[in-house]
Simulated assay, not measured.
Amino acid sequence: MTTYALLLRGINVGGHRKVPMAQLRSVLEELGHRDVRTYLQSGNAVFTTEPTDGGDTDEELAAAIEAAIEKHFGFRVDCLVRDHAYLTAVAADCPFPAAELEGKQLHAFYFSGPVTEERYAALDRDSFLPEAFALGDRVLYLYAPEGLGRSKLGEALSRPALHKDVTVTARNWNTVAKLAEMTAPQS
């Protein structure tokens, strides 16, 4: 059995694309996933599943969940699925002093695939200081001292043109840590 975190992109924002967490749990259970739990209303779930003979990949699990959500709710929602090892590696590899910051000051932008520095070459990083970002394994770390809502760098990084070929969804550091904790193997 493997425990995964499910990250939904762009739901329950401003009353649009409503996905009630109780219904999301039911959709995941109908797919055969177990121990389904949700975290907050912004599209975070944790579930345990039995690997198939071929060994489901994160992408295959995400695709199956996207199809089930579309069938149930009538609209498409991009999803990312990540296991505990990945989530703890993201937390451990953070180049910013996470333990010294408030959760709202640090964010992880999770990507469906790898991204390189070239993607962001046109951004003048110095013009956004003290805000800063760094890339990791399918993740971008954003340090925004005033929070994401006031972040000019966060706004620049969220431009659709920068992510036209990947799915991206952001979580604050409190959620990053909580999902790593929730996916930890149970003893």
Rank of each mutant, 00 (worst) to 15 (best):
T169C: 12
A122Q: 14
G154D: 04
A156C: 13
S151C: 07
V81Q: 02
G14R: 13
L8A: 06
P20L: 10
E146V: 12
A91R: 14
M1I: 03
I65K: 02
F73D: 12
S151R: 06
E102Y: 13
A5P: 06
E70P: 10
A170W: 07
H107L: 14
S151L: 02
S42Q: 09
R119H: 08
R37W: 02
A89W: 05
F75K: 02
A134L: 06
I65R: 02
A99I: 04
R34Y: 08
L87S: 04
P51D: 03
D83I: 01
T175M: 09
E70H: 12
G43E: 02
R76H: 15
L129M: 09
S112I: 07
E50R: 10
A67P: 05
H33I: 00
R9D: 03
A180L: 11
A64N: 09
P51C: 11
D165E: 15
T38G: 10
T183I: 10
V176T: 06
L129Y: 04
D78W: 04
L28H: 08
A63F: 02
T167P: 01
S187Y: 04
R17W: 08
F47Y: 03
E118I: 02
L61M: 14
V27I: 04
G113N: 09
A5S: 11
Q23C: 10
K164G: 08
A92Y: 01
D58F: 01
P20G: 03
R171H: 07
L40E: 14
E118F: 01
T183L: 07
D124R: 14
A62L: 04
R125F: 05
A161L: 03
K104Q: 09
L6M: 06
L123F: 11
A180W: 14
Q41C: 14
G15T: 08
Q41N: 15
A98L: 06
C79W: 02
Y39A: 15
H163P: 10
K152H: 05
L123C: 09
S26E: 09
D124Y: 15
T48M: 01
I69K: 06
V77D: 02
R82E: 03
G14E: 08
V13M: 11
G55T: 06
T52L: 10
V90E: 08
S112T: 07
A121V: 14
N174P: 08
V90Q: 06
H16L: 09
C79F: 04
I65N: 02
D83P: 09
S26H: 01
P145N: 10
G54K: 15
H107V: 01
D58W: 00
F75R: 00
H84T: 08
E146I: 08
D83C: 08
P185S: 12
W173A: 07
A62S: 13
S127E: 13
G10F: 00
P185C: 09
A85R: 11
A91Y: 04
G154E: 03
F109Y: 15
E146N: 15
L153E: 14
N44G: 09
A68D: 11
L24K: 07
S42V: 07
D83Q: 07
P185H: 13
